[in-house]
């Protein structure tokens, strides 16, 4: 089977679903399920006009900030916990607790401490990303092949080179897998954090549209969020392919959370 026919074959189901929806929606006149045209018009009006700078960009900016801070802090903490056994023993139960505590459950606490706004939203995203990355980086550091450690020692590779050229790449399958999991969690947390009374953002607009019976706009929001989740995940698959994939390593899923 050629690549093209393979692609066509895979496109049948989604195309049929979308066509079926449109066929049904045009006839059903159900206000909850507007036809595609109406959703597309609303999508353009809501997200691609002034809404882009008012809602889409702030949402993404919070996501990017929170994600990157959480990721970097998580990797740094994971390196520390992976190398220092006393710290690992000391903080083990606490880290375990925060790993399994769903980040969304912390929203009330963050709202009380920081109020509704960007700081609170970024804070929750940081939290949701940090512990997944922390735990998996620790596991990755612990799993570095003893042979590589020997190479580092035998050739007297200094601490900085050892960390950046040896230990971190060796732990990369764990870190990359965690970063991918963390990204999808961060998207969820971003949206939820906007639904607890934020005046702007993709999540806020979408939930408000539902409450105001603007169903086409609600659908436009759902489509945008779905596209966002999908494309971020696809972008990450590329990152994976050009790092661990290229080195012939396989991303390892360790501990996860939501």
């Amino acid at each position: 089977m050629s690549r093209l026919t393979g692609l066509l074959w895979q496109a049948i189901l989604p195309a049929a679903l979308i066509a079926g929806y449109q066929f049904w929606a045009v006839r059903a006149h159900n206000p909850y399920f507007p036809p595609l045209g109406a959703i597309a018009r609303e999508f353009r009006a809501t997200w691609l006009g002034p809404g882009f700078t008012e809602h889409v960009l702030p949402s993404l900016w919070n996501l990017v900030r929170g994600y990157l801070i959480g990721l970097l802090a998580g990797v740094a903490g994971g390196v520390l916990l992976g190398r220092v056994r006393v710290l690992r023993d000391l903080l083990g139960p606490l880290v375990g607790f925060f790993l399994t505590l769903p980040a969304v459950a912390l929203l009330p606490i963050f709202v009380i401490a920081l109020g509704i706004g960007a700081t609170m939203q970024v804070g929750v995203i940081v939290f949701s990303v940090f512990f997944v990355v922390l735990v998996n980086t620790t596991a990755g550091m612990r799993a570095v092949d003893a042979a590589l450690i020997d190479v580092g020692r035998a050739y007297r590779i200094g601490p900085l080179r050892r960390l950046f050229l040896l230990l971190l790449p060796a732990a990369a399958p764990y870190i990359v897998a965690a970063a991918r999991t963390a990204l999808s969690i961060a998207v969820l947390v971003m949206v939820v954090s906007e639904m607890v009374g934020a005046p702007y953002g993709i999540g806020a607009v979408t939930l408000l549209a539902q409450q105001e019976f603007q169903y086409a706009r609600m659908w436009a929001g759902m489509v945008l969020l779905a596209l966002l989740g999908y494309s971020l995940n696809a972008a990450f698959a590329l990152v994976e392919r050009f790092t661990v994939g290229r080195w012939g390593m396989v991303a390892t899923t360790g501990e996860g959370r939501s």
Binding site: S184, V191, M195, T206, L207, Q210
Partner: peptide
């Protein structure tokens, strides 16, 4: 994200 279908 599962949150997407929440409004609907």
């Amino acid at each position: 994200p599962p949150i997407v279908i929440l409004p609907l």
